[in-house]
Nucleic acid binder design. Structure first.
Lengths: 342, 342
DNA sequence: CTGAAAGCGCTTACAG
DNA sequence: CTGAAAGCGCTTACAG
């Protein structure tokens, strides 16, 4: 074996045609007799020819790959979104290049530059923007340049960069789940939240506060404990909450991961859910329904959000950024109930 | 704005040097005066220059991307692996191109060809091989060609293609969890399994049978209900099991997803776990510890498996395929206990 | 329908 | 240390 992958010129030679003809035949373009096209394809097949995408992209100015920036693929919120993106990409024959931002604007910027270097045609950025103005500016600049060079950008979640976006109804969701707890009779609620610097957190919290104030409660009535937006963060926040605000009857977690952490801590303290404490989540990750008690939460159609984002990106840009709002639906399950009558 | 991304020649021109010098300066190669290098870098920075990876790869014959084939990213087993791969890739400045095989050898083949077309330097294939010989052959052929052309392939899980591999101790794990149930006193066990055509399933089952026979039980004593290797599959299999084998005292699921499905069905039937029925899983996905009851399972270090796989791929190939076995550890939690004394 | 040639944006010997 | 030139493997006008 030679060890070298066959090139187009090898196929052309073997078929006794020019590379131009071979190229046309293989890409199914017009202007090649059926017989020749057939022969070329046959030969390519038998030689195991696979066109070099780099050469193709350089020569043709085309690209068949999309970049996907997520915070962390092991986080089910993002893996669901990624799955949706991959499904559409698979259908369209596109490759997806995935990278982690780790919720760090510096890293996000670096990853974006890598994607641009790789000449992806589309970039889907999932996960909230940062409230850090400075960091956002550099990201914005890079994305603008990319767009001006013909790239397409779609954000999932609110993003500083004005672009087409798929927006989960975070505020609505925060409102709905808060009202749910209020209607059950809870007044002594505590919120456990991821970093307040994330727009996702800020938006959900806005919904919470809106529902609170509609019920005559103020922000000061509902403490917000901040911690990492993860299961571990949920545990830490719940521990702190139990210590500092022992009178609470409901824990409103701003994502399911934190809620799962809360359930775990409550179980270890032998506090019954929902009898002693109600717990609610946000996102409705797949496992939420299978927890015990099953988790009352706000459903976001994550896979669809991923699909929709790439579909938007594949359409030609509109004059003004398109915004697709994805509904947030309250899902009442076993983890929430009336407060203990203390 | 022109709309076109600046090229190396633009930088060179702007800096008053040749493209050769500019290229050397930007890639930090030797043979450029510090002053010139500095100036070139400055200009590149200010113009927002990002080298075209396609051109670079074509010219230099290098590649900075790795391909990752997994069954489905929304499956936590694979998202954990993917996370490990991405972590190492991030450290090394490599891009990762991810694709789904959907546990379909035809699709896997197509995805491999796409990765090869994209001239990735490394391919990590996660997920078991298929027992389907025919399908494996084409995949094997493609990977061999890739390797001969200088590519590196590492499999996670047993794979027909003889290559460096990270091998979870599936058989050991199957053995350990079965012995655990036997030691608790269970004799009337049922297995719920993903497709028997997957090597992962076959290997885990081998461990189960080995432990069974060591305890004087035969394969015919332990029915195996086959269903999709998912939560839904776990539900379906458990429903069938309850109907066909009502005397069972333990459900041994061959992955956590199926176990979660089983727990869900048992709960809806008001069967208590582990009092009425023990349930065990396999993998130890993050949520397993947070279920209620928490899931007894076999831990596989999935993130590490992903990391290890890419690390292996980044080392030069050895004469003979390297095999790294990753230990499977029994994790005893709340979902298993002695059988009801009926 | 087919081919010769230019060119995509880089890198890397080869000279100087 | 620096530059002119060839070449990576394709595609796409441009001729014929």
């Amino acid at each position: 074996m030679t060890g070298a992958a066959p090139r187009l010129v090898d196929i052309a030679e073997s078929a006794g045609v020019s590379v131009a003809t071979a190229s046309r035949a293989l890409s199914g373009r017009e202007g090649v007799s059926a017989a020749v096209a057939e022969r070329v394809k046959q030969i390519a097949e038998s030689l195991g020819y696979i066109a070099n995408v780099h050469a193709r992209s350089l020569a043709g100015g085309t690209t068949s790959s999309v970049g996907l920036v997520i915070h962390e693929v092991a986080d089910p919120y993002f893996s669901e979104i990624a799955s949706g993106v991959m499904r559409v990409a698979g259908r369209q024959g596109l490759s997806v290049q995935m990278c982690h931002s780790g919720r760090d604007p510096q890293i996000e910027l670096r990853q974006l530059r890598t994607l641009i270097a790789n000449r992806v045609g589309v970039i889907v950025v999932a996960g909230s923007g940062y409230l850090d103005q400075e960091a956002e500016r550099s990201i914005h600049r890079e994305l603008t340049r990319f767009t001006q060079a013909g790239g397409r950008v779609v954000a999932i979640g609110r993003h500083q960069h004005a672009t087409d976006a798929v927006l989960p109804a975070n505020t609505d969701g925060g409102h709905a789940v808060t009202r749910h707890l209020l209607e059950l009779g809870h007044r002594r609620i505590a919120v456990i939240a991821g970093s307040l610097g994330l727009t996702t957190v800020a938006d959900r919290l806005t919904g919470v506060h809106r529902a609170l104030s509609a019920a005559g409660l103020g922000e000061q009535d509902v403490p917000v404990v901040e911690a990492p937006f993860t299961r571990e963060g949920g545990k830490a926040a719940t521990l702190e909450l139990l210590e500092r605000y022992p009178d609470r009857t409901a824990v409103l977690a701003l994502n399911d991961d934190m809620a799962i952490g809360a359930l775990s801590v409550l179980r270890s303290r032998s506090l019954r859910v929902p009898d002693d404490m109600s717990v609610t989540g946000f996102d409705d990750v797949p496992v939420a329904a299978d927890l015990s008690p099953s988790l009352t939460t706000v459903r976001l159609p994550m896979q669809q959000m991923g699909e929709k984002a790439l579909e938007l990106a594949l359409r030609p840009p509109a004059k003004r950024p398109r915004r697709v709002v994805m509904p947030a639906t309250l899902v009442e399950r076993g983890s929430s109930g009336p407060p203990r009558s203390s």
